[in-house]
Nucleic acid binder design. Structure first.
Lengths: 187, 187
DNA sequence: CATTCTTACGGGATACGTAATTATT
DNA sequence: AATAATTACGTATCCCGTAAGAATG
């Protein structure tokens, strides 16, 4: 038996979310499901990946190794998915792969410049200038950047998985053909 | 639904083996199982990956894309597995990760030099010099090199999967703690 | 008629949700 | 009490083997 992608995604989500419950929300599944995925991952790895407790889940040394490589594997999968999708443009709505805050201040230029292969996370300031904070190959890495939680408004690719993976503290405003999220306490 | 590792492995094996039957032997499963894996992969990819017929399976344009990225993803998985195994050295038998032809001519130096992270495929000539033909991160890439079929004798890592994946035209001579294979017509 | 692929069917494992239980603060 | 994780259980899906059928040359 070897490690499956679902288990790698679970381990990565737990490491980034800090608790199994938060990871479950991020993955769009229930918490016992994440618990089972983690248990299988630990059986494959041959040891504990997280120290669990009421305070949350802290990765072990072996867990850190798994997390680092899980990121590499899932990035390769993101590259794969992004490339494969180019062969079916008709099935996907045209959308801008950009995240900004706030949306109203987003200049025109960065959108066209960033629309393409790369998933970008950026931020536009009140002076009108946009700053590219991170580049990613797909939702795995794009949603993993530390900056993502600081954004108050997002404009993301029209992918079903992304919608399902919305963090709990964000909510959807519109659904089609582009979605936007905002913190729950956003005015 | 998204692509699973098992499907990527099936697509890669089919592309390299040329037929579903040969890929099944390589993967250590039955041919209908490979057929089903390919069908699921095609459903995920959204189109045919191979043109199938009594002559074999020829990859389509979309198939070539999938094959290329499957290799990248599986290499990342190989790197992951190789690193994770270093945390459990006691569970694995000590063995040399090297393939050579013929084994009797293998000098001492290359073995120690090659024993480590990398899976190497090499060949030693009658003059006693060993040539490193390819380097790989794990069994996926090591067994995928074109040179592997030219070798008459192999000394591989003591991993169960490798034993199960032995091509049909090779056979095992010994099993523990190191295995060797030879062409069926080898004297 | 031989090789290749597909379809059909049954057993076993996995994934997921709901619900109940345990443990720590 | 409240939060976090595990355990228990039922259902749907997937994986794989065996067996039989269809197609090409």
């Amino acid at each position: 038996m070897d490690m499956e992608l679902r288990q790698l995604r679970a381990v990565l989500a737990i490491a980034e979310a800090g608790t199994l419950t938060a990871a479950a929300t991020r993955l769009g599944v229930t918490q016992p499901s994440v618990s089972e995925s983690l248990r299988r991952a630990e059986r494959v790895a041959g040891g504990a990946l997280f120290q669990r407790g009421p305070a949350g889940a802290v990765p072990t040394a072996l867990g850190e190794v798994v997390v680092a490589h899980a990121m590499a594997v899932l990035e390769a999968m993101d590259r794969f998915t992004a490339t494969a999708e180019r062969h079916h443009p008709a099935q996907l709505p045209a959308a801008v792969r950009f995240a900004c805050s706030p949306l109203a201040h987003l200049p025109e230029a960065p959108i066209s410049a960033l629309a393409g292969e790369t998933w970008c996370v950026g931020e536009s300031h009140d002076d009108g200038l946009a700053e590219n904070l991170a580049a990613a190959f797909g939702p795995t890495t794009a949603l993993s950047t530390p900056h993502i939680n600081r954004l108050s408004l997002e404009l993301v690719r029209a992918q079903h998985e992304v919608v399902e993976q919305t963090p709990a503290h964000r909510q959807w405003l519109t659904r089609h053909p582009e979605w936007t999220t905002t913190p729950a306490d956003h005015s």
